[in-house]
Design a protein around this nucleic acid. Structure first.
Length: 273
DNA sequence: ACTTATTCCTGCGTGC
DNA sequence: TGCACGCAGGAATAAG
């Protein structure tokens, strides 16, 4: 999916585009996303003003004037864009919010791993999807002590553990590989074996990788676009992701690709120990 | 309780 | 050109 930087970029775009707009009509396709739409879906949204847009993990939260939150997750291939109202919808447009300024929000998701639902604001953090989410990596929640505690029973490799949302949210397949390279830690190292020094490096690496990616508008591998239809540029800054068989930018060693828990991992066997 | 495999989908590149 | 195959930014669930 869009990982944390991409979702953050989408959220920032939505804040430019849809705040204070009123929803006057919604449309859904016949296809179900990861969850069925809630009953009373339209009633919860129609005539409501969009007050605030933010994110928790990779969930996009649109707070409405009736204290209902519209929750959207982009899955692997979800895209949101804002444009003039148009009946000629691109293939895989599953959800449309028609706004009072002649524009619409379009949710397009070919693979349908995305998710759209609603929740009352007062119950948001108890919501099944959000209740067990781990630390936000760009906040002070992510500390050495926190990771020591979470990792102490984890014998699995640090790369897959890093992608476990119950520990840290928002770090997906790209940023896990990139952060580990920056921290000079092997993706194969069991999480419980990381020293305090390595955890310090890892936390700094995660934060700086995500922050830099946000600055560059995220990564566009194939077709990621933000809400304003711009590409991201962080893919030009990858040190290891997708660079297998190429030379390490630091030591010239050949970058290795391997499979961990069904996902591709890229790393430098010389730099990362 | 942890860890891996499977599952939900479409689309694209590769190789035969 | 066509087809089979593998793989893709996620994450819940099942199974070991």
């Amino acid at each position: 999916m869009p990982e944390l930087p991409e979702v953050e970029t989408v959220v920032r775009g939505l804040n430019n585009k849809i705040i204070n707009r009123i929803i006057f009509k919604i449309q859904t396709s016949n296809h179900k996303l990861r969850l069925a739409y809630p009953k009373n879906f339209a009633e919860q949204l129609i005539n409501q003003k969009i007050i605030k847009v933010w994110r928790r993990a990779k969930y996009i939260i649109c707070q409405l004037s009736n204290d209902v939150c519209l929750i959207m997750h982009l899955g692997m291939s979800g895209k949101i864009n804002i444009g003039v109202q148009n009946d000629n919808l691109p293939k895989h447009t599953h959800f449309t919010l028609h706004l009072d300024n002649g524009e619409s929000l379009y949710f397009n998701d070919p693979r349908r791993f995305g998710l759209i639902t609603t929740c009352e604001y007062s119950k948001l953090f108890e919501h099944k999807l959000l209740a067990h989410m781990g630390a936000e990596p760009l906040t002070e929640e992510l500390t050495i002590d926190y990771l020591l505690e979470k990792f102490k029973t984890r014998n699995g490799p640090i790369k897959t553990t890093l992608m476990d949302n119950k520990i840290i949210v928002g770090v997906g397949n790209i940023y896990a590989s990139e952060s580990l390279f920056l921290a000079r830690i092997s993706p194969l190292l069991p999480a419980k074996q990381l020293t305090k020094v390595q955890l310090t490096k890892l936390i700094l690496a995660i934060k700086s990788t995500l922050e830099k990616a946000i600055k560059l508008g995220g990564s566009t591998l194939k077709d990621y676009r933000n809400a304003e239809d711009n590409k991201g540029y962080f893919q030009n800054e990858f040190n290891v992701y997708g660079r297998d068989q190429q030379n390490c930018l630091l030591c010239n060693e050949i970058i290795v690709k391997l499979n961990q828990a069904g996902r591709a991992t890229y790393y430098c066997i010389k730099c990362q120990k």
